[in-house]
Amino acid sequence: MATYDLSHPLQTGMQTYPGDPDVSLAPHADFDADGYRVTALSLGSHTGTHVDAPSHTEPDGKTLGDFPLDTFRFDAQVVDVRHGARASIDVRDLPTATDADLLVFHTGWDDHWGTDRYRDHPYLTAAAAEWCVEHDYHVATDALNVDPTPSPNASEEEPSGFGAHHALLGAGRLVYENLTGLERLPSRVELHAYPLALDADGAPVRAVAVTPE
């Protein structure tokens, strides 16, 4: 059995969605003054590799605490959609329906993590998101957002708002964002991606893929 960590480490100043809280890790106690160490953390619920609960975008959506713990362990199919900057991922790009319960979209955009270019990632169309709902999939991506992220490079033809989020979260699905290292994986994996014990609209996760070898 092989395991693969698909998570960005939490670090001070790490990249976040535009307008989200800054991330800070700072010493609160240290050995010289206190005889032990404690780190103070400040971050948003959608920091780094994280999961979106339906309440993220839906007024009456479920919070993370509404989901049984085993919901966050998936039979996942990895989908190669390395189409380039701000490319749409549409229904034509999706696989034939399988018995997996999570589609993991490998955009390759984690290569740009920590740069302005990271905002110019591929994104799901609302139609592709609706197809995922119709076929009972949760969704994950190695990009900042399943919808287009505002950027100076955005075109007028791109959808605005959160169409993919609304389609997925509005149907009670989970959305994972900011995975990394998907190029190491086979097409089918077992994915464990448990959130912090936080009954909220989202939370950072430690996403780990498990394969037979």
Rank of each mutant, 00 (worst) to 15 (best):
C132P: 03
V146Y: 01
D20Y: 10
N153V: 02
S155P: 06
R86A: 06
Q11M: 13
F67V: 04
V175D: 01
T16N: 15
W131E: 08
S88N: 10
G181M: 04
N153R: 13
G19V: 13
A100W: 02
T47A: 14
R73N: 05
G161I: 14
L191W: 04
T12S: 15
W109H: 14
R73W: 01
R184K: 15
V81N: 03
A100E: 10
H83W: 13
D30G: 05
D32V: 13
G65L: 11
E158Q: 15
P68H: 02
D199Y: 08
H135S: 04
A97V: 15
T3G: 08
T12F: 10
E156P: 14
A29D: 11
S88F: 06
H106T: 00
H121V: 09
V146N: 07
F31P: 00
R119G: 04
S151Y: 03
E177S: 12
H192N: 02
G114T: 09
F74T: 05
G172F: 02
T49Y: 10
L169F: 04
G35T: 11
L174K: 07
L94W: 09
R173H: 06
P122F: 09
D136P: 03
D5E: 10
E130A: 14
D101E: 09
D52E: 14
G48K: 03
Y17Q: 00
A87V: 14
L69R: 06
V78H: 05
D20R: 13
G13K: 09
V79R: 07
L168E: 03
L182K: 08
H112S: 13
L41N: 13
K62M: 10
V78F: 01
T115L: 12
P195A: 01
A203G: 03
E58K: 00
C132S: 12
S24W: 07
P54S: 06
P68M: 00
G114N: 05
G19I: 13
L43K: 14
D136F: 06
V91H: 04
L64E: 07
R188C: 06
G170E: 10
Q11W: 02
R73M: 05
A167T: 05
V208M: 15
R173P: 00
V51W: 00
R92D: 15
V81K: 05
L196M: 14
A29G: 09
T63D: 12
S155M: 08
V23R: 06
A203E: 01
Q15M: 13
V23Y: 04
H106K: 15
A193L: 02
L41E: 12
R206W: 11
R119C: 02
L10P: 04
D5V: 14
Y176C: 01
P152K: 00
V51A: 08
V79T: 08
G202R: 04
S151Q: 14
Y123H: 12
